[in-house]
């Protein structure tokens, strides 16, 4: 059994090269540890958790005005552990915005955005904006009064942009008012467009971090 496992591992290692992954991802040199440096990993963990619980929610959620709220009541009351899956997704969303934001503050305070990490910072700004976009689009999905009016207000704010405002408002809502189209396009944005953008940019963000290594904590010399 053990020999078989080692053979299989050897076969895969020869073709994939686990050693390289190990050296570059887990064994890379780090500056002296500091808890503030763990916020990026915490954001990544929250992202993965939101993806997994989000996929699970799509098993029962129905993005139509007739059934959206009922399907959520069904998840909360009738599906086993539905309250847990939705609860994690609900609270995880707020926590993710918070953690991503504090991560940005830490990067700013320690001046980690400077050469050669400017691009990492810019991509990070994109990640923060998309995270907020995820929160905004997800907020509408329960289609209860709070969601409906929050989105009415949110899209109206976007509509206050000079000249282009009306176009932006109609593009967001899929028409002049909130409707089935609004719910459907927010759903598409929430489960496909924004997560794919977010996932892709996270990959690029991580690539840059591994390429440049982590910045050291500023000291008197800096």
């Amino acid at each position: 059994m053990r020999a078989l496992w080692q053979k299989l591992y050897g076969w895969l290692d020869e073709r994939i090269g686990f050693d390289d992954f190990y050296k570059n991802l887990l064994d890379r040199p780090e500056p002296r540890g500091n808890w503030w440096n763990t916020l990026g990993s915490a954001s990544l963990f929250l992202f993965i958790m939101q993806v997994l619980t989000g996929i699970f929610l799509t098993v029962y959620y129905n993005p139509s005005p007739d059934h959206a709220y009922e399907s959520i009541l069904y998840i909360m009351n009738d599906v086993q552990f539905g309250w847990l899956v939705r609860g994690i997704h609900h609270w995880g969303a707020s926590l993710m915005v918070l953690v991503v934001f504090i991560h940005m503050l830490r990067t700013f305070v320690t001046a980690s955005y400077k050469y050669p990490r400017e691009l990492t910072w810019l991509v990070g700004i994109g990640l923060l904006l998309i995270t907020i976009g995820m929160g905004f689009t997800g907020y509408l999905l329960p289609w209860h009064q709070m969601a409906y009016w929050a989105t009415t207000v949110g899209t109206a704010i976007a509509g206050s942009v000079p000249f282009l405002g009306d176009f932006i408002l109609q593009a967001l809502r899929g028409g002049p008012d909130l409707s089935a189209l609004t719910l459907q396009r927010f759903y598409a944005a929430h489960i496909w467009i924004l997560p794919l953008l977010l996932g892709g940019l996270i990959g690029f963000h991580l690539f840059l971090i591994i390429k440049h290594g982590e910045s050291h904590w500023p000291d008197k010399e800096d």
Partner: peptide, 12 residues
């Protein structure tokens, strides 16, 4: 366990 229970819930 919660993951599997969640997915197969209607069948139970």
């Amino acid at each position: 366990i919660p993951s599997i229970a969640y997915l197969i819930s209607p069948a139970l």
